[in-house]
């Protein structure tokens, strides 16, 4: 779809969903804060941090390998909150970045996390490292650092591609407890096979809300849920409609209805 006029129904749906999300964010910011369910993978974060502190080994973070986009910012938001918990425990963080701009943002995020926890003395500039922008060179560098520094906990939150298994399996081999989350669905099986806890699908975007309990994030989750209800309703109506159309092909009495329904279903095709 190049332009809204290609399919007004879809464009209208996008506008409606956007308005619902923004409205719920505004409502939450004004005090009506909703509650969201527990996400098991995120409950394990404190366990992972505690383990790393007991073993006297650092925690490793990788915010994905793409530039400063939606997925990376969501990942940095999660990692910033985790870093604050790590700072409270008095432990060290190593963050590896594949993009120079993300490195700058990550430095600010981690430094602020340590400052907010009152442990700015524990933060060092070398803790946030830019390795390279080349995908597999970054994977090789990260694997090397994991083998040398031997982190006890590994947090992988961001956009990952083919190199994801290199991080996850290396972490597994050094005995780190690993928590991963990515919006890239094709990488989820690899994380599931090699990591201890995996955040799947939109739990990744809900993770910031769950950890921080920030009204903006929580309102956004509620808005997304309403949007999902709308989409599910459309899918159900489409299933019923398509079934009636198919039924109409075999039963002449339903022919007229099925033709009209087919036209309605065709309208929604982008």
């Amino acid at each position: 779809m190049l332009h809204a006029s290609d399919n007004y129904w879809v464009s209208g749906l996008v506008v409606l969903i956007s308005l619902i999300i923004v409205l719920n964010v505004v409502i939450a910011q004004q005090g009506r804060v909703p509650n969201i369910r527990r996400i098991p993978g995120l409950n394990a974060i404190d366990e992972a941090i505690g383990r790393a502190t007991e073993m006297g080994r650092p925690a490793l973070m990788i915010p994905g390998i793409t530039g400063l986009g939606v997925g990376t910012l969501a990942g940095l938001s999660i990692l910033g909150n985790i870093a604050q918990s790590i700072a409270r425990f008095g432990n060290k963080v190593i963050l590896l970045s594949c993009d120079p701009i993300v490195t700058g943002v990550a430095e600010e995020t981690i430094r602020d996390a340590y400052t907010n926890a009152g442990r700015q003395d524990l933060y060092h500039d070398e803790d946030v490292r830019y390795l390279t922008s080349e995908q597999f060179a970054f994977a090789a560098g990260a694997a090397g650092i994991m083998n040398r520094e031997k982190p006890a906990a590994s947090f992988l939150f961001g956009d990952f591609f083919a190199e994801s298994l290199i991080f996850a399996e290396t972490g597994q081999q050094i005995g780190a407890i690993q928590i991963a989350g990515t919006p890239q669905t094709e990488q989820i099986p690899f994380f599931l096979a090699a990591c201890d806890y995996v955040i799947i699908g939109e739990e990744y975007y809900a993770a910031s809300a769950y950890i921080t309990r920030n009204p903006t994030y929580l309102g956004s989750i509620v808005g997304q849920d309403f949007a999902k209800l709308i989409l599910i309703s459309i899918v159900l109506l489409g299933v019923i409609g398509a079934s009636i159309v198919q039924f109409g092909h075999y039963h002449a009495g339903f022919g007229h209805i099925s033709v009209e329904l087919q036209k309605l279903l065709d309208l929604l095709k982008a």
Binding site: M1, L2, D6, A162, T185, E186, Q187, A270
Partner: peptide, 18 residues
């Protein structure tokens, strides 16, 4: 979608299920 041009894809095996 502009002209329903046939789109053929040759991904690596990792990306295919999606």
């Amino acid at each position: 979608g502009v002209n329903n041009t046939p789109l053929l894809y040759a991904p690596t095996a990792i990306s295919a299920p999606k």
